[in-house]
Amino acid sequence: MPVRDGSEQDLIMLLKAQDDQAFHEAVSTYTPGMLAVARFYLDPSTAEEVVQDCWVTVVDAIGKFEGRSGLKTWLHRIVANRCKNKLRSGKREVATDFSESLEPELAERFNATGRWDVPPRLQFHESADTLMENGALSDCLDKHLSALPETQRSALILYEAHQHKSEDVCNILDVSASNLRVLLHRARQKIFLMVETFQETGEC
């Protein structure tokens, strides 16, 4: 994901001027995050529809964008609001269990006194970048990410991959700060367990 910083202002200016190329660039930069937000609320194909509709809305609405938040946060809010309206009309609720902060598979690895029964076996020596060069691991990560419950996946993607601040993620996804912590922690444990298995067995 390209870091915009200073150049975000240029992009916004071009978007306001209805520049085709700027829209093309914005669509490829921001669609992944918008889709992550939508997938938190909706099934995959409805999520795609909503994101598509939002972009058409953005063509008209960008003129009113005042820059009080970053462009990314603004876009993500548009998607979240659209999804919430859709849920309201369809009466679908987002169900999430926030009661357990340990993954069952990890919780089983402690004994009754709270000490490790099955401690972590290997240290992940390589840096994240080196690990990512391993195509098989990257594919495995994709597979596990798509298997995560949508709530955990969206929280993880917005917080880690799209580097949103936690208050923005809470705002966009409509979860409390403590529930966001649970979502993130559960998702990270799953990734941890996946990498551990992968390093030990070479299998996903």
Binding site: M1, T31, P32, G33, L35, A36, R39, E48, P119, P120, L122, Q123, F124, S127, A128, D129, L131, M132, S138, L141, D142, L145, L156, I157, E160, A161, Q163, R188, Q189, I191, F192, V195, E196
Partner: peptide, 21 residues
């Protein structure tokens, strides 16, 4: 080891540009 590995998993997520449509 656990904290180190969980941290590495977190960095892995950050490096992995995910959700590519």
């Amino acid at each position: 080891t656990f904290i180190g590995n969980l941290r590495a998993s977190t960095e892995l997520m950050q490096a992995h540009s995910s959700g590519h449509p």
